[in-house]
């Protein structure tokens, strides 16, 4: 992509600005669609209809919501640390958004084709923790501080299982570059790593139970990292009012929201790229090519976004100690077994 921009615009700063802004063209419309999806799916699960008046079946409501948030007064509490308070939402959004750079949207497009793609995503998405902590601390509100403390503990804990489950796929492929990982899985649904990858049949069958386990754990840890139910403790509205973003309003609040939705897709994108073939078509060579591959990536990603919404409106929330228990005593040991077994199978 950068080569193309270079050819068009020469060696100017504009190249980098446009290159960096490209995923925004996806993230912003996605957030609007995701808000609508969240509202409509939850409504139909709860015997409601959700918005019906703005546009056909209320499809324009998210746009109206954004307009409303833009017009709202941007309040900063008098006792807040004003600089950190203003900075925090952008840092949180940046953490999620930077991850999009290494996400292979299609066989022809990846923001930055770096060899340490997955590693890079893990690293930058941890930056959000600092933003959350900042938001909680700067608000000068005890509930916010509580939420921030919880989210830091939670995100750091769940980074272990998510990194380990990424490792399982990386061991099979032998590359940290997500574009390579996607290419590795080309050739149809049977070559996806969740089903053992494009290995000889015996090896494939041996790998199968471990790849499936790692896939589920990656998705679970992903939900935990984006703080959604049943792991939404940092903003548990029935306990902590609204957690770290209690004091936020207007556009700053909207940016937290945007970051949450961006992260939802990022997590889905990682799961899809690593375990479900990324942008590859499930039918081998049928319906493949740059445009189709973009289509497949988004469809698969949206499916996991839908799953996250579904889970959110079905399950209650865990308690802090149960959350930590799940991470350290259930998911992590399982993954150690997976990594060991996968390594053994690959060597043999």
């Amino acid at each position: 992509m950068y080569e193309l921009l270079h050819d068009l615009l020469g060696d100017s700063l504009l190249v980098y600005v446009i290159g960096a802004a490209l995923p925004l063209l996806f993230v912003l419309p996605f957030a609007v669609v995701a808000v609508l999806l969240e509202m409509k799916v939850s409504a139909h699960m709860q015997d409601r209809v959700a918005y019906m008046y703005t546009g056909w079946h209320g499809v324009l409501q998210p746009v109206a919501d954004i307009l409303k948030l833009l017009q709202k007064e941007d309040t900063v509490p008098a006792a807040a640390d004003k600089f950190l308070f203003r900075l925090a939402p952008f840092l949180v959004f940046m953490g999620g958004y930077a991850g999009f750079a290494a996400l292979p949207f299609s066989s022809a497009y990846i923001g930055s084709n770096i060899d340490l793609g997955v590693f890079y995503i893990l690293a930058v998405s941890s930056l959000a923790v600092i933003g959350l902590m900042m938001a909680g601390w700067a608000s000068n509100n005890k509930w916010s501080l509580f939420g921030a403390m919880r989210s830091v503990a939670q995100i750091i804990s769940y980074e272990i299982p998510s990194a380990l489950s990424i490792l399982v796929a990386v061991m099979i492929v032998g590359s940290l570059n997500l574009q390579e990982v996607s290419k590795f899985q080309e050739g149809g649904i049977q070559n996806w790593i969740v089903f053992g990858g494009p290995m000889p049949l015996l090896q494939k069958l041996l790998l199968l139970p471990f790849t499936i386990t790692a896939f589920f754990i990656l998705f679970l840890a992903g939900i935990a990292e984006v703080n959604r139910t049943p792991f939404d403790l940092p903003e548990a509205e029935s306990e902590l009012v609204q957690g770290y973003n209690t004091e936020y309003s207007g556009m700053k609040f909207a940016i937290f929201y945007l970051a949450e939705f961006a992260n939802m897709f990022l997590v889905s994108g990682i799961v899809v790229s690593l375990y479900l073939g990324g942008w590859t078509s499930p039918f081998g060579d049928v319906m493949s090519g740059p445009i189709w591959s973009f289509f497949w990536f988004v469809v698969k990603g949206m499916f996991f976004v839908f799953l996250q919404v579904w889970i959110r409106w079905t399950l209650p929330r865990l308690r802090v100690d149960q959350l930590m228990y799940t991470s350290w005593k259930v998911l992590t040991p399982f993954l150690f077994v997976c990594i060991f077994a996968v390594g053994l199978i690959l060597v043999l």
């Binding site: 939850s42 015997d47 139910t229 409106w313 399950l315 209650p316 929330r317």
Partner: peptide
């Protein structure tokens, strides 16, 4: 009580 536990759906079913 469902809401207190973080499950929103039972609440609306109950209200229905």
């Amino acid at each position: 009580y469902g809401i207190d536990m973080g499950a929103f759906t039972p609440f609306l079913w109950a209200f229905r």
